[in-house]
Design a protein around this nucleic acid. Sequence first.
DNA 1: GCCTTTTGTGCAAACGATTGCAATATAGCT
DNA 2: AGCTATATTGCAATCGTTTGCACAAAAGGC
Lengths: 343, 343
Amino acid sequence: MGKRGRSLEKSARIRTLADLAKIAGVNTATVSRALADSPLVKTDTKARIQALAQEHGFRPNQMAKRLRTQRTGVVGIVVPLGHEKRQHLSDPFFMTMLGYLADALTENGYDIMLSRVIPDTDDWLEAIIGSGMLDGVLLIGQSDQFEAIERVAAHYRPLVAWGSHWPEQRHCSVGTDNFAGGQMAGQCLVAGGARRIAFLGEVRTPEIGQRYAGLCAALQAEGLAAPRQFDVHLASDVMEQEISAHIAEVGDAIDGVFAASDVIAMTALRVLADRGVVVPDRIRVIGYDDIPLAAQTVPRLTTIRQDVATGAKAMVDALFARIAGEDAASVQMNPVLVRRDSA
Amino acid sequence: MGKRGRSLEKSARIRTLADLAKIAGVNTATVSRALADSPLVKTDTKARIQALAQEHGFRPNQMAKRLRTQRTGVVGIVVPLGHEKRQHLSDPFFMTMLGYLADALTENGYDIMLSRVIPDTDDWLEAIIGSGMLDGVLLIGQSDQFEAIERVAAHYRPLVAWGSHWPEQRHCSVGTDNFAGGQMAGQCLVAGGARRIAFLGEVRTPEIGQRYAGLCAALQAEGLAAPRQFDVHLASDVMEQEISAHIAEVGDAIDGVFAASDVIAMTALRVLADRGVVVPDRIRVIGYDDIPLAAQTVPRLTTIRQDVATGAKAMVDALFARIAGEDAASVQMNPVLVRRDSA
DNA sequence: GCCTTTTGTGCAAACGATTGCAATATAGCT
DNA sequence: AGCTATATTGCAATCGTTTGCACAAAAGGC
């Protein structure tokens, strides 16, 4: 006839080290060490405490642990959306990257804190870092925030960004050689017979800007006219209209399209199909990234592959090195042309 | 002699409330209240302290704050991958969902902790919850972990899952009526003239199982034969081969395909194109989800839309209610048929 | 047996914030 | 001026761990 009816068997829940210490008849210190599997505590005491913990489903409070150890075990993954306010966290390339990063981090016992940031104030990165919650930060893409990243990198080491690398750059970045990638795309289009080429994508961000630069260089090397460049927003609801308008504008004046990403390329493919333009016969199309779905389009998309898996691994390796206080240089990987049916 | 003091502008960094309190000449309590914009502290003191904090770029240590307040301000987003060990966090539907969830949570001042879990031990959810790091948990998909979720939901309230709802279910779920969606898909295929239908997808998870059940019901209502069902793995590198094999196996025996997700449908479209099968004339294809890229396929994919945006909002609303101690019922939304060109 | 080592445990001080309560300064009234 | 009500600020306890150090018990050496 106890008043508290529901706590039948299990007496008060074990929530803290102290609780557990009490029922184990030892000090919290011992419990703490036992759970950490410290060699300091006697083997049977350890076993007994661990069993007790298991039985009561006890898990130490992470907040307290982190406060005490000054190690959070959390790394932040941040997607800066500076140039693309309406974009949702949905670009398949970034998402695949996120998946691999998540894998690598979880494997190493780190938790992930995800932020999708629209850099409105200029201290967005400082805010994330200064919260004291993070052992390190991974940026997926530099967006148009190169300056902000540089500034922070000057005094904050455990920071690695996916993206471009510039000669004078201070922050650690991992990425493919976008200039080379752009060149390859250009050469591929030209080799297929294309002469008048359009580039679909905003060139304001370093990554895409370099791809565009590579394309220009390739065309120039062949003695061809500079490409026409069109801005394209990544928000899915406007992209198709924009591309459609651009294609309509250039009409027959082009015979090749280099899209800044596969999603853009796929949309372009769709728009061209609508207009009855046969790809690649009439217009050749090449994308960038090689997202999984790129192999499933009709026609299959020719594209420049960025190897996400090794890229993610490189990012995490670099980050761990920097967390450990070592130094880690930027890495620039080589993109590879994946020749399929669209160019 | 002047005392050592404020003249050293660049002196020791301000890291703690105490540091700031010292240079402000007040107690930590006042600083704490000032930064929290408490009405208890005098307006000018407040302003002075805030200015000082700003100037030194001071941000309070979150770990300490959370330990003290017992509120973490973090919600966990967990993607259970029970039935699909090789899947990376990459299904566009889940990713779009993640984006919307991230938006809604960040808007409300919550941080996100992302876990991609392969439920190897059966207390994976307990482990996540018991860490004391999370104010609440959002599950993106139930996978085949219905039992585990139910078990935890019995004693842990702030938990909301995307997925199916069963009559006897205890945990709060938000999702579309998958049975109805399956029915709609079936009816659409039949209305277009299809008679022998294949279902592409594993029926082990409740969500997809219900879609399949809906399809069966629709066919039965029309007096048609039961559909053929094929397992398909979500890992992108094997999916195409699997589907290809399945299509080859049934050969001319089918004239309609209902894919459990748009990604599967897109791959099916590709496979059919390879075989020279004209969609929808020879085989009609319908997908599920309506991911952004579904509108960009050739031919454009007919599909059953799940409204991610309102779904995510509903999940977050329910979670907040539950965090606040209120009760929130499961919600089941109506899927809608998006008729495009593939069926 | 006495004096070192070696093992195990316990004590208590951090970690850096928040907050109930006490204390003081200021204002408001006769 | 005297006294109360109110606006500010300070004190100190607390959140739940970890860990340096002291300490006790057992073991080893002579």
